[in-house]
């Protein structure tokens, strides 16, 4: 079965945020997800990282401690610290199949593939699994929209990024399948609807809670943290 490349991509400025290291943790997770599934954007991001390399090369060298090299050489044989850093890979508890649904960056975060997740219901036909909470109500989560269900009509208080992992959804701007990224800001008022033939699973990063705009759902805004 031929694997289709994504057709909806993040913009250059988002890839630059990622490559320069200025993207928020949630957005970096979403972009690493898209990049795993998109050779075209991977080439772009690699070129931007190459730019980072040349920029470092052009910096005037900083003064370093006189014994810095000696100290560093002495540390080469030190045993590698067990938990080397916060970036260290989370133990993957569930076995991962030969063709995992979640890219590595997400598997490391949830401790396995999609079957590891514990979903909690948000609204009828919509479940979520929260991954990262940032400042100002920013949230990164996996969402599952049941086949044929629609997410209630909503607009955004900040920018919302969505990357599809399984199935697909449609809204006014088109159809989105695996690897596709949808970017929506305050001006976008939409009602994404999952394809009829299967659940849609996607990674969503929102800078602030979304605002429900449908006639009925609007009344729920004070109660539903969606």
């Amino acid at each position: 079965m031929p694997v289709l490349q994504p057709t909806h991509h993040p913009a250059d400025e988002h890839l630059l945020d990622y490559a320069a290291g200025a993207a928020s943790e949630g957005l970096a997770l979403l972009l690493a997800t898209h990049l795993t599934l998109c050779p075209e954007c991977r080439r772009k991001a690699a070129a931007m990282e190459q730019l980072g390399g040349t920029l470092i090369e052009e910096l005037p060298p900083a003064a370093i401690a006189a014994d810095a090299r000696e100290r560093c050489l002495a540390l080469l044989d030190a045993p590698e610290p067990a938990a080397e850093s916060r970036s260290a890979v989370t133990a993957v508890t569930n076995p991962v199949s030969a063709a995992p649904l979640l890219p590595r960056a997400l598997r490391d975060r949830v401790g396995g593939d999609i079957d590891t997740l514990r979903w909690s219901p948000v609204l009828r036909g919509v479940d979520q699994a929260l991954l990262v909470e940032g400042p100002g109500g920013a949230r990164t989560r996996l969402m599952r929209i049941r086949a044929g269900h629609a997410v209630p009509q909503h607009t955004h208080r900040g920018t919302e990024f969505v990357c599809v992992l399984a199935g697909g959804f449609s809204d006014l701007s088109g159809h989105f399948g695996r690897g596709d990224v949808a970017v929506s800001d305050e001006s976008v008022d939409h009602q994404p609807t999952a394809d009829a033939d299967g659940d849609c699973i996607c990674l969503a990063v929102t800078e602030a809670p979304v605002r429900l705009t449908g006639r009925f759902w609007r009344l729920l805004n004070p109660f539903v943290r969606f």
Partner: peptide, 21 residues
Amino acid sequence: DLLRRERRPAVDPDDPALLPD
């Protein structure tokens, strides 16, 4: 990692989920 105290998600070139170029 050290100064912003955040995890940096990265693309693993050997990820079986990777769509190859």
